[in-house]
Amino acid sequence: MKIAIGSDDKGFELKTELKGLIESLGHEVLDETPENDLNFVESAKRVAEAIRDNKADRGIVIDEYGVGSFMVANKYKGIICANVCNEHSAQMTRRHNKSTIVTIGSGIVGKTLAKKICKVFINQKYDGGRHQIRVDMLNKMC
């Protein structure tokens, strides 16, 4: 699986940690923000466009709180993004919402928890079934 990842200046250090983890799990990493001085709008935009354009299967964006990147990514047609701060929310947004991007706040979530969130999000499958009705509703909104 190919994972697009990006960060603003506040999330750059955590992004570097997560890249190593993702590669160690056997996935390809598409670093959309090799620069360490971007703002969250630009970094989330790059990851959302990579998912939208089918350059990657899933995306992870890190900024200080996760909320700004979350708002940017959800502006894109076909993107369902969730701001997560624990493993359960990462699991459920993938299972029930078919989220293709998660955002993480580096000022809220430490490295150990962020790694757990990444593993869960990458490995979790979408449940489909009754949840597809809501996914279709979300996708019609854009």
Results as ranks from 00 to 15, higher is better:
His131Cys: 05
Val29Asn: 04
Gly20Asp: 08
Ile117His: 08
Ile80Gln: 04
Met92His: 13
Leu25Pro: 09
Gly68Asn: 03
Ser43His: 07
Gln91Gly: 12
Phe121Ser: 07
Gly105Trp: 05
Thr16Tyr: 04
Val84His: 03
Phe70Ile: 00
Leu30Trp: 14
Asp37His: 10
Ser69Glu: 11
Ala90Ile: 09
Ile79Trp: 02
Gly78Gln: 11
Thr100His: 04
Thr16His: 03
Val109Gln: 06
Val29Phe: 12
Gly129Gln: 15
Thr33Lys: 00
Gly68Tyr: 00
Glu87Ser: 07
Leu25Trp: 09
Ile117Glu: 01
Arg130Met: 12
Leu18Lys: 00
Gly107His: 02
Arg130Pro: 11
Asn83Cys: 12
Lys116Pro: 07
Ala56Arg: 04
Lys55Gln: 11
Leu14Lys: 02
Asp8Cys: 05
Asp8Arg: 08
Asp53Phe: 06
Val120Phe: 06
Lys75Met: 06
Asp53Ser: 11
Val102Tyr: 01
Lys119Ile: 09
Asp63Met: 03
Lys77Asp: 07
Lys111Trp: 11
Lys115Met: 02
Val67Thr: 10
Asp57Tyr: 13
Phe70Arg: 07
Leu18His: 03
Val120Gly: 09
Ile22Cys: 07
Tyr126Ile: 11
His96Asn: 12
Leu18Glu: 01
Ile51Leu: 13
Ile80Val: 11
Lys19Phe: 07
Met1Thr: 15
Glu35Asn: 14
Lys75Thr: 01
Asn54Ala: 09
Ile79Arg: 06
Val102Ala: 04
Asp8Gln: 07
Tyr76Ile: 05
Lys45Ala: 09
Arg58Tyr: 05
Leu18Asp: 01
Asp53Gln: 09
Ser89Met: 11
Gly68Asp: 00
Arg58Thr: 07
His131Ile: 09
Met92Arg: 14
Tyr126Arg: 13
Val109Glu: 09
Cys142Thr: 13
Met1Tyr: 06
